[in-house]
Amino acid sequence: MSAAIEIFRAFADPTRLRIVHLLRAMELAVGEIAQVVGQSQPRVSRHVRILAEAGLVERRKEGNWVFLRLARSAEVAPFIALLDQLRPSPSERLWQEADLARLAAVRADRSRAAEAYFAEHAEEWDAIRSLHVAEAEVETAMTALLASQSLGHLLDIGTGTGRMIEVFGPGADHVTALDRSPDMLRLARAKLPEDAAGKYALMLGDFGDLPLEAESSDTILLHQVLHYAQAPEMVIAEAARVARIGGRVLIVDFAAHEREELRTRDQHSRLGFSDDQIQGWFARAGLDLEQVESLPGQELTVQLWLGRRRGARILRHEERISA
């Protein structure tokens, strides 16, 4: 009974109820909650601590920010469902509606920050885009390659500005988007739909050491990411490790090229890849290369490599050493 008592105690405060209702709508930082409920961050943090100690809220650190979401444990689910059975009083309905209106303002702030970032870096991205085919053509080709089966749990490695979760998220059962840049994750968060709570998870992490369980994803995307890797074969091995047996890994990147300025100006570690390279790395990682598609552009060719995970469980590097 002690767990139930702690949960009911956590609910027994109007501000904490407001926080729970807000987190049912979307994942939020403490500062964003404070902005919505009109209270100081220290005061909101105390409420969040009580909710977390009762097991109702989970914290996730992302750079200097801490994001919150409702816990997904089986023990908590009945208490959250209970809120749906309770009819709010007129005054409760008013503050719920007012909080959701202020939450819309938080979304707008995120979108404005994303737009400002895009504007600041537009010339850099346009310079690269001018060398290859239009992104719309790439996305159409990706959609065609993935159309043969459901996306299931979609993992977008190196999500960047969140374009891939914007394109493919609606068709997935669940979406995990990962990036090592907190700034990029904030941009990606601005792309999330209003009904994102529970379906979308944005995570801070490195593509060479994914903070995910083995065999946890059905479809894995690496869109214009691999050329930043010092060791692409390790990134592919990590993607294969978290892919379920029969799951798919789609890499979209440049074919081998000689545009050296992309290395010096744009920090590309690799100047594209050959089909033989990708096929060899796939084979060593336990992936079968199923399809390859080329999209030639003005000076760069965008290449799509689709692999499928084979049989046995794939170990992490440190697990292989200890074995």
Score class of each variant (00 low, 15 high):
residue 76 V to T: 04
residue 76 V to E: 01
residue 79 F to D: 00
residue 79 F to W: 08
residue 80 I to F: 11
residue 80 I to P: 02
residue 81 A to W: 06
residue 82 L to Y: 05
residue 82 L to E: 06
residue 86 L to E: 09
residue 90 P to W: 04
residue 93 R to H: 08
residue 95 W to S: 04
residue 96 Q to F: 10
residue 99 D to Y: 08
residue 101 A to F: 11
residue 102 R to W: 08
residue 104 A to W: 02
residue 109 D to H: 05
residue 112 R to A: 12
residue 112 R to I: 06
residue 114 A to M: 14
residue 114 A to Y: 13
residue 114 A to Q: 11
residue 115 E to T: 11
residue 116 A to L: 15
residue 116 A to H: 09
residue 119 A to R: 13
residue 119 A to F: 08
residue 121 H to F: 14
residue 124 E to F: 14
residue 124 E to A: 12
residue 126 D to G: 15
residue 127 A to I: 02
residue 128 I to K: 03
residue 129 R to M: 02
residue 131 L to H: 01
residue 131 L to Y: 00
residue 135 E to P: 01
residue 137 E to S: 07
residue 138 V to E: 05
residue 142 M to G: 02
residue 143 T to M: 10
residue 144 A to K: 15
residue 146 L to T: 00
residue 149 Q to K: 09
residue 150 S to Y: 06
residue 151 L to Y: 01
residue 153 H to I: 06
residue 153 H to G: 01
residue 153 H to C: 02
residue 153 H to F: 04
residue 153 H to R: 09
residue 156 D to K: 05
residue 158 G to D: 00
residue 160 G to Y: 03
residue 161 T to G: 15
residue 161 T to H: 12
residue 161 T to N: 14
residue 163 R to T: 09
residue 164 M to T: 08
residue 164 M to R: 02
residue 169 G to M: 02
residue 169 G to F: 02
residue 170 P to W: 07
residue 171 G to K: 15
